[in-house]
Design a protein around this nucleic acid. Structure first.
Lengths: 263, 263
DNA sequence: CTAATAGTGTCTGTTAGACATTATCCT
DNA sequence: AGGATAATGTCTAACAGACACTATTAG
């Protein structure tokens, strides 16, 4: 995972073989986290309120500087825990790299390159439990002002995000939508045991479209290693639902395709 | 595309609102390029030979430092042209971000974070045409020593790559394999007009598996906007083949799935 | 003619969507 | 009983892989 500062290059820093870090443009590297969950039947993202300028008071993704002895993903785990109280490593949540955002003017103070990450977690973690996380809370993604995604709330009610974080969240949402098709990601939005109806509601919340129950049942149970029956049922006022747990497969075979015309 | 240096963070640089770049860990940010093509029926990658230590004489990806006034993708275009003579922007080749590699020890000299990119190009560009590209050439990916990919050549003939570039190439190859399934990417490996047999050979080279001709014909012509007939045919010693050109669609609907059991 | 490459047709088992039906709980 | 929720069965049209067949060139 290392890039070579190619000394053959006539770039802004054309140095021979000795290296003086001061001759390179000063970059800061941060790791930001798009933590997604499904609550109340809607896809939601964890945001923190900024205390300082710029964008003081507005909402932003949790994240912070990458340290000298860690890679970007390790920094993402650490910053998420520090800023929101969500200890993803201990809770078993997986953080994956999303994309890197490097526009020269994305931060007005200095040159900051952000390695964005995504996590897909169950409803359980209440971030208010974290000590220094008093200003962390979830927002439904369709209440935000995201580029390229249809918003439900009217314009004036939509929450604006700091920096280019709206684009980062949009990329994370699209990643979730796409991964639901060909991976078993949906189960990571749910607790250890769940019903097929709950699993279907995850798909419907992330995709924003209804699915037919019979088709969903058949496909979820056909896909190898997606779900396996667990002991027990739930009582919810109707016929009790069979409980399931996540299977061992990571990839969905065959995939579950989105009902929309394409992509 | 910007991360916020969150001042609420108790990271390695816990600064208030004033910013002194010197207080942040010194990072260099580079852009590396995995330029893939199909020649002689094999998937090949463009590499440059390093002149200086470390890894002097061994082969590496083209790439270099991101400048102060450009984002990582702009740097990738610039460095690719400078190091290999391939002017991707002028030739109409698309460079897309692949992943970011940030292990602390990936470069022995200093802390370097690499934003890796991929390009998928036709066979035409001979990199030897570039003036300062005397040490650039293509390697078949299965002649390289890549983690997680089956190599064809015996161990001692496989070319080792500098830094962590083997992992970067492997990620680029996997990106190509995956995108061939659900996008029209395959046509970017071919010239403006091509035959269906040539298109099929692209799939077979990238996936490393044979496909049935009837099935491929049916799917390629069924997928909306994938290919459209062009004027003319080719004479190759057999029945002349109908020429096609790339259609307007970016996404393959329905997708072309890999014959292998799974990913 | 044969060899070589390009392209199409057919058959069959599987799959997806739509719709109807059955099952089991609560009040 | 009646309502609500869960789960399954059936029908049909479309699709997949496999295989055989036809078409057009060169030598």
């Amino acid at each position: 995972m290392t890039a070579s500062p190619s000394s053959r290059t006539a770039g802004p820093a054309d140095v021979p073989a000795g290296y003086d870090p001061a001759t390179y443009p000063p970059f800061a590297v941060t790791a930001d986290i798009v933590l997604l969950t499904v609550r109340d039947g809607r896809l939601q993202v964890l945001l923190v309120q900024r205390a300082d300028a710029p964008h003081a008071g507005s909402w932003a993704l949790p994240g912070g500087f990458v340290g000298v002895d860690e890679d970007a993903t390790a920094a993402a785990y650490r910053e998420l825990a520090e800023e929101t109280g969500v200890d993803a490593a201990t809770l078993g949540y997986h953080l994956e790299q999303l994309a890197t955002f490097s526009a020269p003017d994305r931060d007005p103070r200095m040159r900051v390159v952000s390695v964005a990450h995504v996590a897909f977690v169950p409803d359980v973690p209440l971030p208010t439990a974290g000590s220094d996380a008093t200003n962390a809370r979830f927002f439904a993604v369709d209440d935000l002002d995201l580029p390229g995604l249809p918003a439900v709330a009217p314009d004036e009610d939509r929450v604006p995000l700091a920096f280019d974080h709206a684009a980062i969240v949009a990329a994370g949402v699209e990643r979730a939508r796409s991964k639901l098709e060909w991976t078993t990601l949906a189960t990571s939005f749910l607790p250890a045991t769940f019903t097929l109806a709950e699993l279907q509601r995850v798909y419907e919340a992330v995709w924003g479209a209804p699915l037919s129950r019979p088709g969903f049942h058949r496909k979820a149970k056909t896909a190898d290693g997606f779900v396996e029956p667990a002991d027990g049922t739930t009582a919810t006022g109707g016929r009790p639902a069979q409980l399931y747990r996540a299977g061992t497969a990571a990839r969905l075979e065959p995939p579950l395709t989105r009902p929309e015309p394409d992509r």
